[in-house]
């Protein structure tokens, strides 16, 4: 039997999932999962598909509601919060399939929420959008439409779109899974840079090498439960649970050097 992971942290958590479960119809996909993310911490959620990683992630900006349990952001229960849109500006999200608006230029993909949600002037919204496009290395592509950009470029625009709202927490749902291998690097570079600048991040990913390098903590989820969690060196170098060992062996990573 897997142990249920009990987090023990001294730092005040920015995000805290407390005993959350999710039932779709009569199928329970998450069974009482608890997880904490401290400020400036980078936490990776790894595990086989169908383990509930994405659902867990989507609780954090209420794209999905847990069937039971609590989700605390900055100490407040977001499930009881009235203004969901205020929360969503503090929690940025990046999707596997980018989800850029195809009928808007890269610049307006970034600027539209600044303009309509944060009520900036058109000029200010454009300036901020341009600044964040430059941050992800796309200063020169602002007038391009998504269809004219490579997958890696599209994903970086999507990151800029989320970052422009100055979120306190960034959620990534398999940000590189839809990318051609040679384009993955450019997106990971941006995430590295964000980490360096102290962004708090919760990342669902299959990039084990990257998790090993960039994570402060790795949480291994299987069949809706936390099987094992800890520092990447410990989890990858010396996994304790049989299921973790089996899972990691598929990536021929366990015990090797990142």
């Amino acid at each position: 039997m897997p142990i249920v992971y009990k987090p023990e942290y001294t730092m005040a958590a920015l995000l805290k999932l407390d005993n959350v479960s999710k039932t779709f119809g009569d199928r329970e996909v998450l069974h009482g999962v608890s997880l904490e993310v401290a400020p400036k911490e980078v936490v990776f959620l790894v595990g086989p598909s169908g383990s509930g990683k994405s659902t867990l992630l989507r609780f954090c900006n209420l794209l999905e509601h847990p069937s039971s349990g609590a989700v605390l952001f900055e100490g407040a229960d977001i499930l009881k919060q009235k203004n969901v849109n205020a929360l969503r500006q503090s929690v940025g999200m990046v999707f596997q399939s980018f989800n850029l608006y195809p009928h808007m230029t890269a610049l307006w993909n970034v600027a539209i929420a600044l303009r309509l949600v944060q009520r900036k002037s058109a000029r200010e919204a454009r300036e901020i959008a341009h600044h964040f496009l430059a941050e992800v290395g796309l200063a020169h592509r602002g007038s391009a439409y998504p269809a004219e950009l490579s997958g890696g470029q599209q994903q970086r625009v999507a990151i800029a779109r989320a970052l422009a709202l100055k979120p306190k927490l960034m959620l990534f749902d398999e940000p590189t899974s839809a990318l051609d291998p040679e384009l993955v690097g450019s997106v990971l570079d941006v995430i590295r840079k964000m980490r360096h600048e102290g962004m708090t991040m919760l990342i669902v990913s299959h990039e084990m090498q990257f998790a090993r390098e960039a994570a402060d903590k790795v949480v291994f989820l299987d069949q809706g439960r936390v099987v094992e969690a800890g520092a990447p060196a410990a989890l990858f170098g010396n996994p304790q649970q049989q299921r973790t060992i089996e899972f990691l062996s598929r990536f021929s990573l366990a015990g090797s050097h990142g």
Binding site: N61, R88, Q89, M93, I112, A162, L165
Partner: peptide, 13 residues
Amino acid sequence: GKGQWEAARSTGL
């Protein structure tokens, strides 16, 4: 796509 809704809603629109 549902992703368009989710992306927009996730930015607070």
